[in-house]
Computed example of a mutant assay.
Amino acid sequence: MIDPLVLLAFVPAALALNLTLGADMMFCLGQGLRHGPRAAIAASAGIAAGGLAHGLVAGLGLGALVSGMPWLFDVIRWVGVAYLLWLAVQALRSGPVRGAGHDVPAGTHHAFRDAFVVNLTNPKIVLFMLAFVPQFVDPARAVLPQFLVFAGVLSLGGFFVNGAVGIFAGGIGRTVARSERFSKVLGWISAGVFAALAARLAVMERA
């Protein structure tokens, strides 16, 4: 389905992208600080699932629709901005972290869902899929399976990199969350991360 040499060339390029500081990594960082390592891993999994969905969309050719319709890009973008701001408000309203920084299963579920939605509402990822992945796609073969494989490689690498960042942040969060004062500070930090991501998405340009 994919030439092994092409896949071999794609892996280091994908890893370099995974290691680049971006919105996904910052989101996992915020989740780790606020809710602990398990939530950070769940958020990383949600982002990975979103990456696979973007690969499917781009492989089906729907990404070209977003690329050619500026208003659709803006609609998706502003939905993402609104959702991130809602997460920021929730981080402020949630108060101190319960259980001295130890996250609970419900928190991991919400982390996965929020990360998935945030990733899906970033139209830049679809355009990135259309700009980067096609360089490795062989048009003589089935295009959709190739997009899914390359998206899977990107998502898998991102899962481990973003998860590691979140786990590290979660360790810090558990240490300081024993203090109610620091726990409140973590809430403000998480809200700041979400607000910064919303601002970044709001000023984003298509090109």
Results as ranks from 00 to 15, higher is better:
residue 182 F to T: 09
residue 150 F to S: 07
residue 184 K to T: 03
residue 79 V to W: 10
residue 200 R to A: 05
residue 62 L to S: 07
residue 123 P to M: 15
residue 51 G to V: 02
residue 76 I to E: 08
residue 95 G to K: 15
residue 131 A to H: 08
residue 92 L to P: 00
residue 125 I to M: 05
residue 198 A to S: 06
residue 199 A to K: 15
residue 87 L to E: 13
residue 92 L to G: 07
residue 94 S to G: 08
residue 38 R to S: 14
residue 88 A to D: 11
residue 170 G to S: 09
residue 84 L to I: 03
residue 180 E to G: 05
residue 105 P to Q: 03
residue 120 L to H: 10
residue 168 F to L: 13
residue 88 A to L: 00
residue 205 E to D: 12
residue 166 G to V: 03
residue 103 D to I: 01
residue 157 G to I: 04
residue 11 V to Y: 07
residue 186 L to S: 10
residue 154 L to H: 04
residue 192 G to D: 07
residue 198 A to I: 05
residue 2 I to T: 07
residue 122 N to I: 03
residue 56 L to M: 13
residue 57 V to P: 09
residue 48 A to W: 01
residue 38 R to V: 09
residue 49 A to W: 07
residue 180 E to I: 09
residue 187 G to E: 15
residue 55 G to P: 08
residue 205 E to C: 08
residue 27 F to C: 06
residue 154 L to F: 04
residue 145 P to T: 06
residue 127 L to D: 09
residue 46 G to W: 03
residue 186 L to N: 01
residue 47 I to Y: 06
residue 126 V to W: 12
residue 79 V to S: 06
residue 174 R to D: 07
residue 116 F to S: 01
residue 7 L to P: 01
residue 158 G to E: 02
residue 15 L to D: 05
residue 182 F to G: 01
residue 33 L to A: 12
residue 52 L to R: 11
residue 171 G to T: 08
residue 11 V to A: 05
residue 32 G to E: 14
residue 191 A to C: 01
residue 138 D to I: 13
residue 164 A to I: 10
residue 184 K to E: 02
residue 110 H to R: 04
residue 131 A to T: 04
residue 105 P to C: 10
residue 68 G to W: 15
residue 164 A to C: 08
residue 60 L to S: 13
residue 172 I to P: 02
residue 194 F to E: 05
residue 35 H to Q: 02
residue 41 I to Y: 13
residue 73 F to I: 13
residue 12 P to D: 01
residue 174 R to T: 10
residue 201 L to E: 04
residue 86 W to E: 05
residue 60 L to N: 12
residue 120 L to Y: 06
residue 175 T to E: 11
residue 195 A to T: 08
residue 74 D to E: 06
residue 150 F to G: 02
residue 23 A to H: 00
residue 92 L to A: 05
residue 186 L to P: 01
residue 65 L to I: 10
residue 29 L to M: 02
residue 190 S to D: 00
residue 127 L to W: 15
residue 175 T to G: 08
residue 177 A to T: 04
residue 136 F to R: 00
residue 121 T to V: 13
residue 113 R to A: 15
residue 21 L to D: 12
residue 53 A to N: 07
residue 101 G to Y: 15
residue 65 L to E: 15
residue 87 L to V: 03
residue 195 A to H: 06
residue 117 V to P: 03
residue 120 L to P: 09
residue 200 R to G: 00
residue 10 F to K: 00
residue 194 F to A: 02
residue 99 G to H: 12
residue 48 A to C: 05
residue 44 S to K: 01
residue 168 F to V: 11
residue 104 V to C: 04
residue 14 A to I: 09
residue 73 F to V: 07
residue 61 G to V: 09
residue 8 L to H: 03
residue 140 A to K: 04
residue 174 R to L: 15
residue 135 Q to V: 06
residue 201 L to R: 15
residue 143 V to D: 03
residue 153 V to P: 01
residue 113 R to V: 11
residue 104 V to N: 06
residue 143 V to E: 02
residue 135 Q to H: 15
residue 119 N to I: 06
residue 168 F to W: 14
residue 135 Q to E: 06
residue 58 A to K: 14
residue 133 V to T: 05
residue 27 F to R: 07
residue 168 F to A: 15
residue 177 A to Y: 02
residue 99 G to W: 13
residue 117 V to E: 00
residue 14 A to D: 04
residue 157 G to Q: 06
residue 42 A to E: 03
residue 6 V to E: 14
residue 133 V to F: 12
residue 109 H to Y: 12
residue 49 A to S: 15
residue 57 V to G: 09
residue 62 L to A: 14
